[in-house]
Each structure stands twice: as structure tokens, then as C-alpha cells.
Design a protein around this nucleic acid. Sequence first.
DNA 1: ATAGGGTTAG
Length: 529
Amino acid sequence: MFCSLPATPLILSSISPSYSLQLYPAMSCSHKIQSPLLHNPSIFTNPRRIHRCKLQVLAMVSVPSKTRSVITSSALHLDERSAGIRAVNFLDKLKAIPFKDTSEILSTMEKDLSNWTLSDFNGLLMALFAANEPELAMELFSNVSSLSGLDLAPNCSTFSIIIRCCCKRNDLDEAQRILHHMMGNGYNPNVTTFTILIHSLCKRGKIGNAFRVFQVMGGIGCKPTVHTYNCLLKGLCYVGKIEQAHEMLMNLEKKESIRPDIYSYTAVMDGFCKVGRSDEAMELLNQALVLGLEPNAVTFNTLFSGYTKEGRPQHGFRVLKLMKDKNCLPDSISYSTFLNGLLKWGKIRAALKVYKEMVGIGFEVEGKMMSSLLRGLCMKSWEEKDLVQDAYQVFEKMRERVSVIDHTSYSFVIRTLCIGRRTGEAVYHLEQMTGMGYVPRTITFNNVIQALCMEGKIGEALVVLVSMFENGKIPSRTSYDMLVKEFNQQGLLLGACNVYGAALKQGVVPHRIPTKMMAKIVPQTVVPV
DNA sequence: ATAGGGTTAG
């Protein structure tokens, strides 16, 4: 296969004709893949040959069913083009034959492939590429001529697909070699072919190489399209050459032949955003708008993430408004990027606002963000009581969504419920927690005991204390203190003594001592926990 | 109409 070629620099003349002879023996006479069968029918009697074919068939047949379903779906996706479906049928047919039956396999392949058009063949290659099987595609490409009576000349598309396969395998040198092979053998590569290669080079940060290919392209009079430039713009941004990218974009604006599109602008905007220059990105967006380009969700999403990176996620509200003004519907990425940014920087109230909007529209909020929002709301609710209700609603939403709530979320919401004096719900969720096999931390039990005591519900508080034992937790000094204090305040000296005694039995000496005092109706002091 | 370009979180 191709791997037999030595690495060659990017110079056209370095490809000698002898290389191509070795590389594509079937194509060396004419530019066609010709079947050796036509000249030498006896080839299938050669055991080594048969073995090789068999291996290849095995490789093809062993395409896992998952991959094959990808082939099917990508085939269906391509407007139900017959080529992809044919490819799948072909693979299915091969799979139905027992491996031992070599001649049957070979004749099936031959029969089936013999009436394939080049379009079918390219479709199969493309399907294999889409199914993440670049090796298989390349194997098929280099061997199909010897397996069947095919008489198909590969064309520019065929080679383009093969180049993409090389790129997918991370073998860019090979991809460049194939490009040179094309140029040296009359398969004129076109813009698409070049763009594929330039794209792959840029994506890997090989910007210098990309520009060299770009020059080769110009050298043979092949005019770049906006696609080509967009790849280069992305590549420049990727390696941090934002100024150069910006300059290139501005120069494109002056060109007659090329109209930069919204992708061009998005690419450079993203470049600015990635290095903390979101305002300049915003400026570019305005420029694009003036030019009459229609920004899409991706264009705006890059700004959401840019402002997040810079630590000013609230600017997202402007972006969101602009989006709506320009009739661009925010997608789930817009919202989750924005929400994520606000949460990351602790802008809880803003996050709540965005969360509510998302829920209102019907967007799913990811579990991680729900927990993060809940946590933020709970912590803030300890100072700003109006958030208790919101925190609890988020929690309820989480319970609707997933069956298993994490330990931390329970702890946070229980504390918040205690602070909001919703002791009934606090006790309920504490029970839920233990029922699920979680062991709440001592502080969580104490939160509930304290809240119950504050409401004078001494009996229930005692039940919680007992449940600590049931869950294998040793109550802390604070746990006992709160109860002794409340018994004292309610004038229940006996109860106070009982708790005190129980504490001593556990080896804990409470600060509070059972004291005879006047019963108090409304408790006013709070024991810090 | 066989082949080519874009975004996010941990």
C-alpha cells in the first residue's frame, strides 16, 4: 500500500514515475484501475493470493455491527443515495457467507462489484470514511482492482476521499504524497482536494505546510474558495496568530473574487475570544452585521464562551438580547455555555434567571449544572432568604429528573430548608437520604436538630438524635447542647437531665447543664452550629 | 449535485 513510499518533501518533481509504478501497478499503463483478472484468470489459483483476499474480506466482514449501522445511517442521511445502501447490502451479503468458503466469497465479490459504477465505489469509500474505517477504505481502494472485474478509473473525488482517509489516520505526509501522485499522473486535483488537505494541516497547527500547499495550489492556477480561506483563518487562530488572521480577513473584504461569509467572521471572532479579546470579537460581529451577513448560533456562542473566559459572563445578557434582536434562536449550547459561565463566576442570581428562561423554553439543564446552581442558591440563601424557595424548586426539578440525587445536594438543600424554617421538608429529606443508604454528616443532623429546637419541636429533635445512632453516627457535643438548651428553655428539667445523662454515657460532656428556669414561649437565641 | 469550512462545559 501507500506506506511503502518514502517520505518526500513538498516538491512536485520529487515524485518519480517509478514510485507511481510501484504504488499503483494497475494504473500505471492507463489511468484506470484494471483487473488483473482480465489478463490472468488463473490468479485465483494462487494460494497466497487467495489468502490475501481472504484476509481482506475478513477485514471487511469484521466491520462491527455498530460501524455498519453508522454506514447505514450516514447513507440514509445522504438523501438515501443508492451508493451507501449498496455498500451496506454488499457487506451484509459478504457476512452471510461462511469464512471457509473462499471461492464463494470471491465470486460474490466479483459478481456484486462488477456492475458497480464509480459513483457506487466512491460512495462505499465515503461510507467507510464516515464510519471511521479509513484503513478499510484505503485497503479497498488499493485492492479492489485485483478482486473483481471492475474497470473503473478513480477520479478526483476518489483520491480526495483517500486523502481524507490519510488525514483521519493522522498520516499527513502520506496525504501530501498522494496529492503529488495525483499531480504527477494526470488526476488534476481541484479546489476541494486542496482544501481537504489544507484543512487537515491547519487543524493540526501545521500552518506553514498549509500555506505551502496553498501556494502549490495557486501555482497550478487553482483558485481558492471561501472554504479554503476559512480553513486558513481557523489555522492561524489556532496557532495564536490572531493578528494575521484578522489582517487576512480584512484583505479578503477588499478582494473581488472572494466574499468572506459568516464562517470567516466566526473563525476570527473565536480567535479573539480564545485570547481574552471578546470586545474585539464583538466589534467584528458588528462589522459582519453591517455587511449584511447573518450570524448564526455558533457565532454568538463563541461570544458567550469568550466572555466567560474573561470572567465577565454577565455580558452574555447583551449577547442574548442581540441574538434575539437578530432573529437567531439561542440553542442549548448558547444557554448551557452562558449558564455555565455565570455559575463558574458565582453569579448566582443571574444564573437563576437564565436557568428559569431555559426551563421556560423547555431546554434540559445538565445534571452537573443543576447541582452547581443548587449549591450556589443554597449558599446564598443563608444570607438572602428569598432564595430558599428557588433553591427548593431546583432541587425538586432534580428529583423529577434523576432517581439518584448526590449526597452533597441533599446536605445543601437540608440546610437551606432548615434556614427557611421548613423543618417538615428538612426532616422528610433527611429520612430520604438515609433511606437511600447515604450517611448524612453530623453537621446535617445538627442543622435539623437546631431548626426543630428553634421551633420548639423538642420531641422531633429527639427523634433525629436517636436516628443518628441508628445511622452509626455519634452525636457531637453541639447536638446534645442544643437539646439540653431547648429542654431548659421549655422548663423541662427532666428531659434536659435525660439528654445530659445520655451524653455522659457516650463520653461527651455538654457545655449546657440542665437548669431550672422559666418556661419561654418564643425562643430568641440561636446556638451556632 | 460523488469530495471540502464553524461553537460549548467538566
